[in-house]
């Protein structure tokens, strides 16, 4: 009897410790929602960069209508407010998160990158339908902006 009680208590104790450790590595619902939203936002950038990048690299023929639509989407996405995405405690490389701590410790620098992308995509949207050369010239600053932000604020996959 005594032994059985002890076993039950020990097992329950182990469960509590284990679930606390488990919860420690996971996000609250609100945090997860913010992470899902910003990662979806990134996915939309990638989807709309696709045709523009392929045209810039001569992989598909230039199409003014497609280019203009994709560039307008990019500009709309980049000009949205992203402030609510960066909830405290959603940095690090666990749970599929690649957002570096620097986003929070250097929010001004991070926002400057955001502004750079907004300006570059707005400029791209203005000329994307005006021919391949015009689109390609305006595309450069957009991908440079992708790269410089990912260099400073995104960690490799875990």
């Amino acid at each position: 009897m005594h032994f059985k009680t002890l076993t039950v208590v020990a097992t329950a104790g182990a469960f509590i410790v284990a679930s606390a450790a488990f919860a420690g590595g996971h996000l609250t619902e609100d945090q997860q929602r913010a992470v899902d939203a910003r990662q979806s936002h990134m996915g939309l950038y990638g989807f709309n960069l696709g045709p523009l990048g392929a045209m810039a690299q001569d992989k598909i023929p230039y199409d003014a209508e497609v280019a203009a639509a994709a560039a307008a989407n990019l500009a709309a996405l980049a000009n949205m407010s992203h402030d609510a995405y960066w909830v405290e405690g959603t940095d690090g490389s666990g749970d599929g998160i690649r957002a570096k701590t620097e986003i929070w410790t250097d929010m001004d620098g991070f926002k400057a990158e955001d502004m750079k992308l907004a300006a570059a995509t707005t400029a791209l949207a203005a000329v994307a339908g005006d021919g391949l050369d015009a689109m390609r010239a305006a595309f450069g600053p957009v991908w440079q902006s992708c790269g410089s932000c990912h260099e400073a604020y995104r960690a490799p996959r875990s």
């Binding site: 990638g46 960069l49 696709g50 990048g53 690299q57 991908w143 992708c146 790269g147 410089s148 990912h150 260099e151 995104r154 960690a155 490799p156």
Partner: peptide, 17 residues
């Protein structure tokens, strides 16, 4: 050359350098 992956993600972290 450009830092673009086939699905138009860009090189980040130390690989950007």
């Amino acid at each position: 050359k450009s830092g673009f992956t086939p699905d138009f993600d860009s090189a980040g972290g130390t690989m950007a350098a």
